[in-house]
Design a binder for these strands. Sequence first.
DNA 1: ATTAATGCAAACGGTTTGCACTACT
DNA 2: AGTAGTGCAAACCGTTTGCATTAAT
Lengths: 161, 161
Amino acid sequence: MSADGSPAAADGTTPRTAAGWEGVRDRLHARGLRWTPQRRVLIDVLSRSDGHVTGAELIERCREADPSTVPSTVYRTLDVLEDLGIVRHAHGVDGREEFHVLPVSDHGHLHCTGCRQTWEIDEGEARALVAAMREDRGFRVDLSHLSVAGVCRECAAASAG
Amino acid sequence: MSADGSPAAADGTTPRTAAGWEGVRDRLHARGLRWTPQRRVLIDVLSRSDGHVTGAELIERCREADPSTVPSTVYRTLDVLEDLGIVRHAHGVDGREEFHVLPVSDHGHLHCTGCRQTWEIDEGEARALVAAMREDRGFRVDLSHLSVAGVCRECAAASAG
DNA sequence: ATTAATGCAAACGGTTTGCACTACT
DNA sequence: AGTAGTGCAAACCGTTTGCATTAAT
């Protein structure tokens, strides 16, 4: 149980983020909110997830740890965590909710329509677009909602023969 | 009835696109597909729409012309039209299907989370991003699936006081 | 003892489907 | 006549909600 506050990751799975998960419990308490087994499971799943997951995926993964997991609880907890600034959500190319965890730095997403893989677009990569939108239109881009689809190198190569 | 083949837009609403809509009927016939009243209504609605609409919006607008419009027919016709290359669909920030008509040039979408307005991003504006993705990652961006959210000038000003 | 959080089950909204029927060609 | 297209109604999927119950504080 790495999200619990206990030593964490003695099993070899390195904790993705040094700080953050241990404090969740306290941050909940600080707001008069509660630390429940269901929340522990979700936090644990989130701490293992690598960037972005759909709501449905999270539910599925929680069920692996606790088969009695129920959607409403997961979504409600995600809401709370979003309030705490611990997760953020956007919408993927297929239109499903996509949560990303611990948005240390804002970033967008790059989706390959071939292999369905996803990568992150950081501030540096998006700088030109952000600047252009700002200058041309006075539009402030929210990087965490930037979604770009296309074909990745591998898929392009594969389809080219 | 502007999509019908008849003179069109005698009422003052200028036809958005000179070519394209008149030929739909023929293009359908050329494939052994049929020209039905329901399709005429949808085509008519599309011919009046300015760029991008959700499926639900299209249904609503079709119902204005023909209250007996039914969702399945609309979606099925949109499928056919997409096959013909007459519409394209992507997903908006809120995750709903978003159709854009006659994609003469590929373009992405800019969504304001304040006023919910949408603008188009053309190739020129996206060039830097497209180039960066291509160079850094070998990723070919599909402009028609580019979705950028943020706050427009007006909303930024409004919220700033 | 409070009252936040849960589980259930039902509702939601947009979209998709199976099927018998209609109507374009 | 033949088959593409329709309308209906029900199913779908991910998500949200109301409500009585449970359990963290």
